[in-house]
C-alpha cells in the first residue's frame, strides 16, 4: 500500500512552505533538520514478515486466508489502535484454533501478543488495543488443531498529534 508515501510527502510540502514563506521562523530550525527531512524510500509495507513469520511458526508453512484482521485504515494515534482478529473455524473438539499470534514488522518487539484458545472458546475471535510504531502492515497467524497455519493482514496508517506535547 502506498498510503505511507503521500502522507509523508504532504508533511514535507508543509515544511517546504515554512522554509519558503516563514523566513522569520527559520532560526528556530536546528542545523541538519532540513536534511533529515529529505525523502528516503521507506521499505515496502510488510517486508519484514519474510523473516518474522517462520520464527513464529517454527518453520511451518503458512497459507493466506481464514484469518481476518480488522483495524482502522487511519489510526487516530499510534499509542492505542483497536485490532480485532477473527478466524474461520468450527471450534469443535476435533477442529479448532489452537493459537492466534499478532505480529508487527515495524515495532521494536515484533510479537504483539499470542493467545491460546481451545474448543471451549466456542468462537475464534479476539480484540485488543495495540501500540504501532508508525504506519505499517500488521499480520495475524492462526494455528489450527490439524497443525496448519493461516494468516491475514491489515494496513494501518498511523497519524500523529499536531501539537508537540511536553507536559
Amino acid at each position: 500500500m502506498a498510503a505511507d508515501t503521500p502522507m509523508k510527502g504532504r508533511r514535507r510540502d508543509v515544511l517546504a512552505l515554512a522554509l519558503a514563506g516563514g523566513s522569520g521562523l527559520l532560526p528556530l530550525l536546528p542545523p541538519g533538520a532540513a536534511q533529515a527531512q529529505m525523502p528516503t524510500a521507506p521499505p515496502p509495507l510488510g517486508s519484514g514478515y519474510a523473516l518474522l513469520v517462520p520464527k513464529a511458526t517454527q518453520g511451518a508453512p503458512v497459507r493466506a486466508g481464514r484469518v481476518t484482521v480488522d483495524a482502522p485504515t487511519l489510526a487516530d494515534n499510534g499509542h492505542s489502535v483497536p485490532v480485532r482478529i477473527v478466524v474461520q473455524s468450527a471450534m469443535q473438539p476435533d477442529d479448532h484454533v489452537r493459537s492466534i499470534t499478532l505480529l508487527s514488522d515495524r515495532n521494536p518487539r515484533p510479537v504483539i501478543m499470542k493467545a491460546w484458545l481451545g474448543p471451549r472458546a466456542g468462537r475464534a475471535e479476539l480484540a485488543t488495543r495495540v501500540r504501532l510504531n508508525g504506519t505499517q502492515r500488521i499480520l495475524a497467524l492462526a494455528e489450527m488443531s490439524d497443525g496448519t497455519w493461516w494468516s491475514g493482514e491489515a494496513d494501518v496508517v498511523v497519524t500523529e498529534s499536531a501539537c508537540l506535547d511536553g507536559s
Binding site: R11, R12, V14, L15, L17, A18, G21, G22, L25, A33, A36, Q37, E160, S161, A162, C163, L164
Partner: peptide, 14 residues
C-alpha cells in the same frame, strides 16, 4: 524530536 518537528511547523504556518 525529529518526528514532531514538521508538526510544529504546521502549527506555525496554519
Amino acid at each position: 524530536m525529529r518526528a514532531v518537528l514538521p508538526c510544529a511547523w504546521l502549527l506555525a504556518v496554519v
